[in-house]
């Protein structure tokens, strides 16, 4: 029992410690990679998926440009990651974020955080697929 508590406390301390110690994603823009994605499974592998950069200093998936190409001037966007540990796609914790068409600095709209190097990712949009987004990673 004590060992379990100690282990939990240690893990909590580690979780808190790593959160505090991790650098905030304030890297210079050219230290991060940009990729243009089409949302949804619209184009299947051709333009709707990408791999998280393993060499950039950005650890998150930042949505830095949104273009909803349908009638509305905004859409809801959600990040999805492929987990190799379970061989399944999971939606990132934030779920759908409401984002107006436009361009944004990194750290404004974080779809997914602390994404593993080379993780496969995709972006869903609410009002159908086919939106054009720029993900800075």
């Amino acid at each position: 029992m004590r060992k379990a508590i100690a282990a939990s406390a240690l893990a909590l301390a580690c979780a808190a410690g790593s959160l505090v110690l991790a650098p905030t994603a304030s890297a210079a823009p050219d230290a991060c990679r940009n990729v243009v994605l089409i949302t949804g499974d619209w184009e299947d592998d051709n333009g709707s998926q990408a791999l998280k950069s393993a060499t950039s200093t950005c650890s998150d998936l930042n949505l830095t440009e949104a273009q909803n190409l349908t009638a509305t001037t905004y859409d809801w966007y959600a990040g999805r990651l492929y987990y190799t540990s379970t061989s399944t796609w999971k939606t990132c914790s934030a779920g759908y974020l409401r984002i107006n068409n436009g361009t944004y600095a990194t750290d404004t709209y974080v779809l997914c955080s602390s994404v593993k190097d080379n993780a496969r990712f995709s972006v869903d949009s609410w009002f159908g697929g086919g939106d054009r987004v720029v993900i800075t990673h």
Binding site: A15, L19, D60, S85, A94, C112, S113, S114
Partner: peptide, 27 residues
């Protein structure tokens, strides 16, 4: 609850981080 997060966004970031680093059995 033993979780350090300043707001919802920080909470989502922490959740993403912990989820990705956990073993499948711990998810």
């Amino acid at each position: 609850h033993g979780i350090e997060a300043a707001d919802e966004q920080a909470y989502f970031a922490l959740a993403d981080r912990l989820m990705q680093s956990a073993d499948a059995s711990e998810l």
